[in-house]
C-alpha cells in the first residue's frame, strides 16, 4: 500500500507482490468454485470469498473507499441478498452439472479459452511498464474519500443523480415484480368449509412424520402399509422436491425387529444372518 505513494514506479513492494500471489490464487480458486460448486449456497459463499479478496486488492491499489464499500455493499449486502434468495428457492436443491444443451459445453469452453487468450494477449501487447500511483491524486483533497467526493459532487454530479433515480426505480421495480395482485375474490370461511366437505379429505390432512422415524416437516408420514404419503408434506417442499423418503428405513427397522424377535424365539440362524447383513447395508 505504501508503495503506491511512489510516483512513476515500475514495480511494487515485495509485500504487495507476495500478497497478490497468495490472495490472487485464492480469488481464482473462489471464482472457479463459484462456477463449479453443485449447490448454490456454496457458490455464493465462494463468491463472497473472492469479493473479499478483491476488496483487499482495492485497498492495495489505493482505493480505500471502494475497498470498504466492496466489503460493506457487495459482500455484506448483495451477497447476503443472494443467500436469502437461495434459501427462498431451496437451499438443499443441488444442480446437476450434466449438460443438457448439445455442444453447449464445448462451445463455452472454446469461447472462454479464445476470449481469455485474446484478452490476455491484448494486455500483454499494451505497453504498461510504469505506473503513476495515486499518492498525488489522493493527497490533492486531503485523502481518497475527499478526492472521490470532490469528483462525485462536481464532475460526475449528474451521473450520481441519475444513479439515485435508477436505485429508486429498481426498488419500485422489485416491489412490482414480487408483489402478487390477487386475481380472484378471497374465499369466505363458509366456502372453504363447503369445499372441504366436498373434497376427499374431510378430516385435517395427516401430519408429517406419522409412523416415520422423524416428525420433521420434510419427512412424509407413512401409511399403515409402510409407503410414504406425500399429502403429509407441505406443498412448497413438495414442489421443491425436498421430501426425505424414509420408507426404506422403517421397513428395514421392521425387518430388524422381526429378526430380533425371531432370534429370541429360537428360530433358524441362517435367515437371521441374512437379515443382519441387510441391516448392515441399510445402516451404511
Amino acid at each position: 500500500m505504501t508503495a503506491a505513494l511512489a510516483a512513476a514506479a515500475t514495480t511494487t513492494s515485495t509485500g504487495e507482490a507476495v500478497q497478490f500471489w497468495i490472495l490472487g490464487t485464492v480469488a481464482v480458486v473462489g471464482a472457479l468454485s463459484t462456477v463449479l460448486m453443485k449447490k448454490a449456497v456454496h457458490s455464493a459463499l465462494s463468491l463472497a470469498g473472492t469479493m473479499i479478496v478483491l476488496a483487499v486488492f482495492y485497498l492495495a491499489n489505493g482505493a480505500y473507499f471502494l475497498g470498504i464499500v466492496q466489503v460493506v455493499v457487495y459482500t455484506g449486502a448483495i451477497m447476503m441478498l443472494f443467500l436469502f434468495v437461495v434459501m427462498l428457492v431451496g437451499v438443499t436443491a443441488a444442480d446437476s452439472l450434466k449438460e443438457t444443451l448439445k455442444g453447449q459445453r464445448w462451445l463455452a469452453a472454446a469461447c472462454g479459452l479464445g476470449f481469455g487468450i485474446l484478452l490476455i494477449a491484448g494486455i500483454g501487447q499494451a505497453s504498461l511498464q510504469s505506473f503513476n500511483g495515486l499518492g498525488a491524486a489522493n493527497a490533492q483533497h486531503g485523502g481518497n474519500v475527499e478526492g472521490l467526493a470532490n469528483l462525485i459532487f462536481t464532475k460526475y454530479v449528474f451521473a450520481f443523480e441519475i444513479t439515485g433515480a435508477l436505485l429508486i426505480t429498481a426498488t419500485v421495480g422489485a416491489m412490482l415484480l414480487t408483489h402478487r395482485e390477487r386475481t380472484e375474490r378471497a374465499k369466505t370461511q363458509r366456502e372453504l368449509s363447503q369445499e372441504r366437505v366436498r373434497s376427499s379429505h374431510l378430516p385435517p390432512l395427516p401430519a408429517p412424520g406419522v409412523y416415520a422415524r422423524h416428525n420433521a416437516v420434510d419427512i412424509a408420514g407413512l401409511l399403515p402399509d409402510g409407503t410414504p404419503s406425500e399429502l403429509t408434506v407441505m406443498r412448497t417442499l413438495r414442489q421443491r422436491g425436498q421430501i426425505r423418503d424414509v420408507s426404506g428405513d422403517s421397513l428395514a427397522e421392521l425387518k430388524a425387529l422381526e429378526q430380533r424377535s425371531g432370534e429370541r424365539l429360537g428360530r433358524d440362524r441362517g435367515p437371521a444372518r441374512d437379515h443382519a447383513e441387510e441391516e448392515e447395508e441399510v445402516a451404511k
Binding site: 444443451l101 453447449q104 469461447c111 472462454g112 479464445g114 485474446l118 494477449a121 501487447q125
Partner: peptide
C-alpha cells in the same frame, strides 16, 4: 438463453480479435 449467451460471448471474442 445460454445458447444466445454463447453467441454474444463468441461475438465479443471476435471483436477483440478484430481490434487486436
Amino acid at each position: 438463453a445460454r445458447s444466445y449467451a454463447v453467441s454474444m460471448f463468441g461475438g465479443a471474442a471476435v471483436l477483440i480479435a478484430a481490434t487486436l
